[in-house]
């Protein structure tokens, strides 16, 4: 294992200390239990928005804490769900009296831990709603799996719900918007290389020099199919076809499109992917109204990318355009 770290056991805390030092104007970090909280939380009268998940996906979620997005994030160990005490502490820290929304990615551990946290917070009188994000088309949704994984749509949901909470929407409205974003989003990822969990010390899976994994998850869990590496056009075509046909996205639709890097793919390739995606969608008569290109939901140092499309109406676009000021996403005002 080759990583810029001191000790595998200290990775999370030392990285959090870096976040605290770099972004003291936006967030504060607590360590026991570990949470990243918006610096002016709780904002009175505003719905609080909490998310969380395993670490190793930076900037998600801690990088999205700030005005117009999350009020708090709970970082778990690398690729491991955070624990209910973190989520309960985060929920309390951001409860401004209007209730708290938990945005949960659909992984068994995340869902169970957030359920326990919601039970704890509700027992103490905080109104909590939870919305589970499950946008990954690589996973067949059936009674025989844990359901689709939550991936890229989480970033879009956090931005849009954050804007809705900021303009004063109530808890039910913000939660319904989150469900709407999830229902209208689809994603798919792929990887060229594996990644190494610091505490494990060796790559999560082996993959040949000339191979790629289509439908990869964000934890290095194997995907839908292993195949020889193809051209960017073919890769984007395969992923986009799976996404577009699933919702389906139709000619005349407007979308918010995210081309996301898995952590080890340079922007030069991500923009090349965006170009292919743009061409692909143009041919289908689908218009990209807004876009996001970069590393937003990563998988440590894995090389690869994911594509997320959200069918967007005027309301979603207006909330997307609203000002946001977080370590990793900032625009407007």
């Amino acid at each position: 294992m080759k990583k810029i770290i001191n000790n595998p056991d200290d990775v999370i805390n030392e990285s959090l200390a870096g976040v605290a030092a770099a972004h003291a104007d936006l967030v504060r970090v607590e360590y026991d239990p570990a949470i990243i909280v918006r610096v002016d939380a709780p904002v009175q009268g505003k719905v609080g928005i909490v998310s969380g998940g395993g670490s190793g996906h930076e900037p998600m979620h801690g990088g999205f804490v700030g005005m117009g997005m999350l009020d708090a994030a709970c970082p778990g160990d690398v690729f491991t769900s955070p624990t209910p005490d973190q989520m309960e502490a985060a929920t309390k820290a951001v409860d401004g009296g209007a209730g708290v929304l938990h945005i949960v990615k659909n992984y068994t551990g995340d869902v169970m831990n957030f359920e326990m946290a919601a039970e704890l917070a509700q027992a103490e009188g905080t109104n909590v709603e939870a919305v589970v994000i499950d946008d990954d088309v690589a996973v067949q949704d059936s009674l025989y799996t844990a359901g689709r994984r939550g991936v890229g749509a989480t970033v879009l949901a956090e931005k849009i719900c954050g804007a809705a909470a900021e303009r004063g929407d109530d808890l039910k409205t913000v939660a319904d918007l989150c469900r709407k974003v999830n229902a209208n989003s689809r994603s798919m990822g792929m990887a060229l290389t594996s990644c190494t969990v610091p505490a494990a010390g060796e790559p999560t899976f082996q993959i040949g020099e000339d191979e790629m994994e289509i439908g990869i998850g964000i934890h290095g869990e194997p995907g839908r199919e292993r195949m020889k590496v193809k051209s960017a056009k073919e890769i984007v075509g395969m992923m986009s076809e799976a996404i577009v046909s699933d919702l389906p996205f139709n000619s005349g639709d407007s979308v918010i499109a995210m081309v996301n890097g898995m952590g080890g793919t340079p922007l030069i390739e991500l923009y090349l992917v965006y170009n292919e995606l743009n061409e692909f969608l143009k041919e289908k008569g689908i218009t990209i109204a807004r876009n996001l290109v970069g590393n937003y939901i990563t998988s440590l140092e894995m090389a690869g990318c994911s594509i997320t499309l959200l069918k967007a109406d005027d309301e979603l676009l207006e909330l997307w355009d609203a000002p946001v000021l977080t370590p990793a996403l900032r625009w407007g005002e």
Binding site: S81, P84, M116
Partner: peptide
Amino acid sequence: LIKKVGGASGPL
């Protein structure tokens, strides 16, 4: 265990 394990095995 609930506080320290995380994942699915913590709650289970």
